[in-house]
Amino acid sequence: MSRLDSMLRRFTAQRDGLNWAADQIASLSGDALDMGLGNGRTYDHLREILPNRRVWVIDRILQCHPSCVPPEADFLQGEAEPMINRLVEQGHEIVLAHYDFGFGVKEKDVAEAARLSPIIASVMVPGGIIVSGQPLVGFEELDSPKGIAPGRYMFYRAA
């Protein structure tokens, strides 16, 4: 499979997974959280599919497309752990989270996702959904939604 085809499959799985997750949390209260803004594509999609929810964003730097800049009050710039802890301390609850942090080194990315998992759990509402490009620990792992190849993206429910 070409790298282009692989990227298209990943983007399709991400979009379809986020759409599925939005349906799953429709009856729950809480905000959304995009961990890893990057170019802003996922944030842009989240604000479109969740128009009545606040969408928080965490990233080390703000370097997204100009059309995808989150409101200043919703952008938490810095390392993930203190930014998530800030959300917890302020009483915010997350019902849908997207995890897309990475260094680009698989072993390092997996270790970081495992390290951050309990911190992410601390801000999630029971029954909330996490859509992740990396394996997380301590959550109920869910089957991939129909049409998404197992392992392409991971889906979890918070306890």
Rank of each mutant, 00 (worst) to 15 (best):
residue 154 M to V: 01
residue 109 D to L: 14
residue 105 V to T: 14
residue 103 F to A: 13
residue 107 E to V: 13
residue 75 F to K: 05
residue 74 D to P: 04
residue 107 E to L: 14
residue 91 G to Q: 08
residue 158 A to W: 00
residue 77 Q to D: 08
residue 113 A to W: 01
residue 73 A to I: 07
residue 142 L to F: 01
residue 75 F to H: 03
residue 87 L to M: 00
residue 151 G to Y: 09
residue 85 N to K: 13
residue 157 R to L: 05
residue 149 A to C: 14
residue 94 I to F: 03
residue 79 E to T: 10
residue 135 P to G: 06
residue 108 K to S: 15
residue 97 A to D: 09
residue 153 Y to E: 14
residue 78 G to W: 08
residue 142 L to E: 02
residue 112 E to L: 10
residue 139 F to S: 02
residue 122 S to D: 10
residue 112 E to V: 03
residue 79 E to L: 13
residue 127 G to K: 08
residue 76 L to A: 04
residue 126 P to A: 08
residue 157 R to F: 09
residue 86 R to Y: 14
residue 123 V to F: 11
residue 65 H to A: 11
residue 131 V to S: 02
residue 139 F to R: 04
residue 158 A to F: 01
residue 80 A to V: 14
residue 147 G to K: 07
residue 154 M to I: 02
residue 94 I to M: 04
residue 97 A to H: 07
residue 151 G to R: 09
residue 79 E to A: 13
residue 97 A to F: 09
residue 108 K to Q: 15
residue 68 C to Y: 13
residue 86 R to I: 12
residue 113 A to Y: 00
residue 119 I to H: 14
residue 156 Y to M: 03
residue 153 Y to F: 15
residue 89 E to I: 12
residue 85 N to V: 13
residue 123 V to K: 11
residue 142 L to M: 08
residue 87 L to N: 03
residue 100 D to Y: 10
residue 73 A to S: 10
residue 98 H to Y: 13
residue 84 I to C: 02
residue 67 S to W: 14
residue 83 M to E: 02
residue 139 F to N: 03
residue 77 Q to S: 09
residue 72 E to R: 11
residue 145 P to N: 07
residue 122 S to E: 12
residue 88 V to T: 15
residue 144 S to G: 03
residue 109 D to N: 09
residue 156 Y to H: 05
residue 100 D to G: 10
residue 147 G to L: 05
residue 130 I to K: 06
residue 158 A to V: 02
residue 138 G to Y: 03
residue 91 G to V: 06
residue 143 D to G: 09
residue 135 P to M: 06
residue 92 H to A: 07
residue 112 E to N: 15
residue 118 P to I: 05
residue 122 S to R: 13
residue 119 I to D: 12
residue 128 G to Q: 00
residue 109 D to V: 14
residue 114 A to E: 14
residue 151 G to P: 06
residue 137 V to G: 07
residue 147 G to P: 04
residue 155 F to W: 01
residue 66 P to E: 08
residue 73 A to T: 08
residue 83 M to Q: 10
residue 131 V to D: 02
residue 115 R to L: 06
residue 105 V to Y: 14
residue 131 V to K: 02
residue 120 I to M: 15
